[in-house]
Design a protein around this nucleic acid. Structure first.
Length: 222
DNA sequence: CCCTGATTCGC
DNA sequence: GCGAATCAGG
């Protein structure tokens, strides 16, 4: 397999969505996760929280001798340059305009939390929730999306920019999967209509509508 | 053990 | 440029 433009584009998108290298690898197919990671770095894609990163500021004196099979001793590893921590993606949220509780409050009993459904059917955070740093990961085992005439005039991944609605229609991997494509609500990733679905104002607990907004193309049937 | 991403380096 | 091998933390 080679890195065609399409595959690179897909890699960029998936990678930026926080999909793991393994998932990207077996979604793209024909490449290992190492290949994905390598390519991602070569493309200069932003690194993502790695379990192996946090290390800095040690006495460069004498690290413990490692009695392991050195593959080569050409270049002893130079000190890794400190990399800025990845910025937490701040999803736009409507201000509820409600004063927060006092910091002295010991605990919050399990209060019912309002959740709305985001694109792809993922559960969104309620306004009161703490930030969830990680974007939702789609299910594994996706079938490779193949270009088909059905989406010829639909908004595809490559058509996305910050001025058009990115609300997904259908599911990735399905032949007619595409995006809304309507003019985006300025400052938001979606059009006005889909913003209404994606973002809900905090209502009094009294009257909240049980029927959750219909997300995209309906629940995933599998 | 499994997973993760980062890095190196021969090709 | 590519990616297996390797590293290293969770």
């Amino acid at each position: 397999m080679s890195w065609t433009d399409e595959r690179i584009e897909r890699l960029k998108e998936l990678w930026s969505q926080g999909i793991t290298a393994s998932q990207i690898a077996d979604e793209l197919g024909g490449v290992s996760r190492n290949a994905v990671i390598g390519k991602a770095h070569r493309l200069g894609l932003q690194s993502r929280p790695s379990p192996v990163k946090p290390n800095e500021g040690e006495a460069p004196a004498a690290p413990a001798t490692k009695a392991k099979p050195e593959r080569s001793e050409k270049a002893p590893r130079p000190a890794p340059e400190p990399r800025p921590a990845p910025v937490a993606a701040a999803a736009p949220e409507p201000k509820a305009g409600v004063a927060q509780a006092q910091p002295t409050a010991p605990q919050q009993p399990a209060q019912p939390v309002v959740r709305s459904i985001g694109p792809g059917g993922f559960v969104r955070q309620g306004p009161g929730d703490q930030q969830a740093p990680i974007p939702p990961a789609p299910p594994r085992r996706l079938v490779p999306a193949k270009p088909s005439p059905e989406i010829a005039d639909k908004t595809s991944l490559l058509d996305l920019n910050d001025r058009i609605c990115k609300w997904p229609i259908g599911h990735p991997g399905e032949p007619d999967f595409h995006f809304c494509g309507a003019p985006a609500n300025p400052g938001f990733p979606y059009c006005v209509q889909h913003c209404g679905v994606a973002y809900q104002a905090q209502l009094p607990r009294r009257d909240r509508k049980p029927p959750p907004p219909l997300p995209f193309g309906g629940p995933r049937v599998r």
